[in-house]
Simulated scan of single mutants.
Amino acid sequence: MRRSHGPAFKKAVIDLAVCPLCRGRAVTQGVFHELPCDHCNASGFVAAATGEALPLDELVTQLSMRLQAAHRQIEQLKKPRTTGPGAHYQEGNRLGAGGSNYTGD
C-alpha cells in the first residue's frame, strides 16, 4: 500500500449502472404524475459496484467525465480515414525539413 498525502492527482472513474428502480428514466410513476427517483437522485445511474446512489457532487463529476469521453469518441469518428496506397500521403508524419510532411519521393 502506498502512502499519500492529500487528494489523488487524477479523479477515478466510477463504473455506473442503470438504476434498477427507475430503469434509467430518472423518474418513477406516482399516482397521478411522475416523481423524481429517490434511489438514484433523479439521475438514472447508480454505482455499479454497490448499487447505491452517488452523492450529487460526485455524480456531476462522473457524468461530466462520461460526456467528455463520448465527445472525444464522436470527434474521432468524424475524422475521415484514408485507406489504401495513398493513405500515407494524406497524413502528416513530421519527418521532413522543419517538421513538414516527408513522402520519400
Score class of each variant (00 low, 15 high):
49 A>E: 15
62 Q>R: 00
65 M>T: 00
69 A>L: 09
68 Q>I: 02
51 G>M: 04
61 T>Y: 04
49 A>Q: 14
66 R>I: 10
62 Q>H: 00
51 G>A: 05
52 E>L: 13
55 P>I: 02
71 H>I: 05
56 L>K: 10
71 H>C: 09
36 P>F: 11
52 E>M: 12
38 D>H: 09
60 V>L: 12
37 C>F: 07
58 E>V: 10
70 A>R: 10
60 V>P: 00
62 Q>D: 01
48 A>I: 05
37 C>H: 07
59 L>Y: 01
53 A>C: 09
52 E>K: 14
41 N>W: 01
42 A>N: 13
37 C>M: 09
38 D>F: 07
71 H>N: 12
67 L>P: 00
66 R>P: 01
66 R>L: 13
36 P>I: 08
47 A>I: 10
47 A>M: 14
42 A>C: 09
43 S>Q: 06
68 Q>K: 06
61 T>M: 10
37 C>P: 05
53 A>L: 03
61 T>A: 15
67 L>A: 13
45 F>T: 08
70 A>F: 06
39 H>L: 14
43 S>M: 04
41 N>I: 01
43 S>I: 03
40 C>G: 11
44 G>A: 11
54 L>S: 04
66 R>Y: 13
66 R>D: 12
56 L>P: 01
47 A>H: 11
55 P>Y: 05
39 H>F: 15
50 T>E: 11
37 C>D: 10
47 A>E: 15
46 V>P: 02
43 S>V: 02
50 T>H: 06
66 R>K: 09
70 A>I: 02
44 G>D: 11
38 D>S: 14
48 A>E: 14
54 L>D: 04
45 F>M: 12
45 F>N: 07
43 S>P: 03
44 G>S: 08
51 G>P: 00
49 A>Y: 08
41 N>M: 03
58 E>K: 03
57 D>N: 07
